[in-house]
């Protein structure tokens, strides 16, 4: 029946199903699971005292990260946020090196110096998560300036949250990107709350994408829990950027299931609200339903992916546990490129 329906709707299939092969779509599902299980694994390791500090989980926002990153090449670059694990994995990071970083090991992406909040993978174009709200936005514009000047064809995606749209850096960056027509895509993942403050209380416009008009760039609103819709907007924005037509602001409306960070008592939203998103709008569940509906995968295939991801996560945590701790005598390494007395 699914096949019949697919044939009937061939002409108006959602974007992703016309653009990507079944193998690619299955890999998207796999990566969405990888993001979720990675964060669950990190959370569990934190609860068990294997990881210290804090972390900001993006569980519930997986389709947004994957949809935006799917059209990017390994050479394209991103800047990310304190809620950046999903962006990192979506951009191609290896979860074992991410776990190793969270465990503070020298085998981690940042050799144990950055942790969750500064996770990066420069080899795949991830210039880093950022502990400062909106801190990565001007850096992305700078990377786009490099791309334009050096003529290397790269585009840059700047991920940030709804909280960042009220920072001055947001305004300054979008304005400069627009006047210089830089190949950068601003992706606001609006999960409804900047820590505890809702966008309704913090932001004077109904939609953050409305602000694009102030910078003479397209502002696009997508359902951030719908992979295909996000990917479609990302493709269009990237195409526009590569053509030299300048930046786009994409507002990806989504939701985080967990609290802001480990200190969150969830006093600013209701259980019912959280449960509604988890039950009715979960990005992975929605994507699975679609994939089955369009005959991309069946329950066995999904189960195989889940098992495969579980193995990768378990292996990643083992890898992290086994890695060496940094030498205390190396404390001052990486402050400067060349050692300074």
């Amino acid at each position: 029946m699914a096949t019949a329906k697919k044939a009937a709707e061939q002409s108006n299939l959602p974007f992703a199903y016309t653009r990507y092969s079944h193998e690619q779509l299955k890999d998207v599902l796999r990566k969405m699971y990888l993001i979720r299980r990675f964060e669950e694994g990190a959370e569990d390791s934190y609860m068990r005292g294997l990881i210290h500090g804090t972390m900001h989980l993006s569980i519930g926002q997986e389709a947004s990260a994957m949809g935006i990153c799917m059209p990017l090449t390994d050479e394209d670059q991103i800047t990310s946020t304190h809620r950046g694990h999903g962006h990192s994995i979506a951009k191609g990071a290896d979860v074992k090196k991410m776990f190793a970083e969270f465990f503070g090991k020298t085998t981690g992406y940042c050799k144990g110096r950055g942790g969750s909040m500064h996770i990066a993978d420069v080899s795949k174009g991830n210039l880093g998560a950022n502990g400062i709200v909106a801190g990565g936005i001007p850096i992305a514009v700078g990377a786009a300036l490099s791309a334009k000047r050096l003529g290397n064809g790269k585009v840059v995606v700047s991920f940030f949250g709804d909280g960042a749209n009220n920072e001055g850096a947001f305004h300054e960056s979008l304005n400069m990107a627009s006047i210089w027509k830089l190949p950068v895509i601003f992706v606001c993942e609006n999960n409804g709350y900047g820590m505890s403050t809702s966008t309704a209380r913090s932001t004077a416009v109904a939609n953050i994408a409305d602000r694009a008009a102030a910078y003479s760039m397209p502002g696009v609103i997508v359902d951030g829990n719908n992979f295909s819709e996000v990917a479609e907007a990302s493709h269009a924005a990237i195409e526009r950027a590569r053509a030299g037509e300048g930046p786009t602001l994409i507002e990806s409306k989504t939701y985080r299931y967990r609290g802001h960070s480990k200190s969150d008592r969830n006093r600013y939203r209701t259980k019912e609200e959280i449960e509604d998103w988890m039950t009715n709008r979960d990005p992975i569940a929605l994507f699975e339903t679609e994939l089955k509906e369009f005959g991309v995968i069946d329950d066995h295939g999904i189960e195989a992916i889940r098992e495969d991801v579980a193995r990768e996560i378990a292996a990643g945590i083992e890898y992290a546990k086994e890695g060496p701790m940094p030498e205390i005598s190396d404390l001052a390494r990486f402050v400067y490129t060349e050692e300074v007395a």
Partner: peptide
């Protein structure tokens, strides 16, 4: 003007653009 770039009056953003450009291959 592409190499002697007037920025808007945006010290925070401008400094950040210089940082981002430096990380990705320019010498601002």
């Amino acid at each position: 003007p592409d190499r002697v770039m007037d920025t808007p009056i945006s010290e925070l953003g401008g400094a950040g653009v210089a940082v981002g450009a430096a990380v990705t291959g320019l010498r601002p």
